[in-house]
């Protein structure tokens, strides 16, 4: 190779290298002398994030999201590019528990659909259970029952809730037991139950049997038959409402047939 070629190749290398060196050194110096202390966990969480800086989480870049996670306890599930693996690693790092010991599922404690439970009046307003509940106490005859305007279905992150005949139902296979539907239900009739539990009392009405019968043909009337025919201690009465004690294993499923209003059901 003649010296021209060497010069031609070397010069750019030299210059770019030199520029890089100058910049690198100045950056290093700057980083050293102008450092600002911050929570080391922010940097660590930033490492765990994919670093795409896509802003899809609603924060301006990964570092900002990491800061929000560490400082403001932001939701750790917002990163779409990172996916489940990213969520798990952040969960592990932040010490947020990812799952409980027993698998739970949400359950709507009401089986009074439009066929069995009457509505007192025609509701004309926005499709929101809390809003409907605030108007003359909700249109459902039973003041404990599911209104069926689907607020729970709309907050469900995995679309596990559907509204059928004016009644919300949770799809057990999809439910991740996040509890959002429980928080949004104005009547507080969605509960977390063990996924493995075979039978449930699908009623939330604490009214006397006669009053329940007036408004719903499938409500618990407090007849106590389940406490007699079911397993010992599996059914507990709370006033006029029976409910299942999930710590007791169920063996005798014939209570389903015995219940006069058929509100004990399999899920």
């Amino acid at each position: 190779m003649d010296s021209e070629t060497i010069k031609f190749i070397l010069t750019p290398f030299l210059w770019v290298g030199l520029t890089g060196l100058v910049i690198g050194v100045s950056l290093a110096l700057a980083a050293k002398y102008m450092a600002v202390r911050e929570d080391p966990r922010i940097a660590q969480v930033t490492e765990l994030l994919p670093g795409a800086n896509c802003g899809g989480c609603g924060f301006a870049g990964c570092a900002e999201y990491a800061k929000a996670i560490v400082v403001d306890n932001a939701d750790i599930t917002l990163c779409a590019p990172g996916g489940a693996a990213c969520v798990d690693s952040i969960a592990a790092f932040m010490g947020v528990s990812a799952g409980s010991v027993e698998k739970m599922t949400a359950l709507v404690m009401c089986c009074g659909d439009d066929e069995s439970a009457e509505r007192r009046f025609s509701y004309n307003g926005i499709n929101d259970c809390a809003a409907a509940d605030a108007l003359a106490g909700g249109d459902k005859g039973c003041t404990y029952g599911c209104l069926g305007y689907g607020s729970c279905a709309r907050v469900c992150p995995v679309n596990a809730i559907i509204i059928e005949k004016g009644l919300a139902r949770v799809n057990k296979a999809l439910c991740i037991a996040c509890g959002k539907c429980i928080a949004v239900c104005p009547r507080k009739l969605i509960k977390l139950v063990p996924t493995a539990a075979p039978i449930h009392v699908l009623c939330n009405s604490k009214d006397k049997g006669a009053d329940v019968k007036k408004v719903c043909s499938s409500g618990c009337i407090g007849c106590r038959l389940c406490t007699k025919f079911g397993d010992e201690g599996a059914f507990v009465m709370d006033g006029f409402l029976a409910h299942v004690d999930y710590s007791v294993p169920i063996t005798r499923e014939e209570v389903i047939e015995k219940c006069p209003s058929k509100c004990i059901r399999r899920n």
Binding site: G125, I126, A130, A131, L135
Partner: peptide, 12 residues
């Protein structure tokens, strides 16, 4: 639109 109902819901 049920504007007042929206307002009430928001206020709640």
């Amino acid at each position: 639109r049920p504007l007042v109902q929206h307002m009430r819901r928001g206020k709640t």
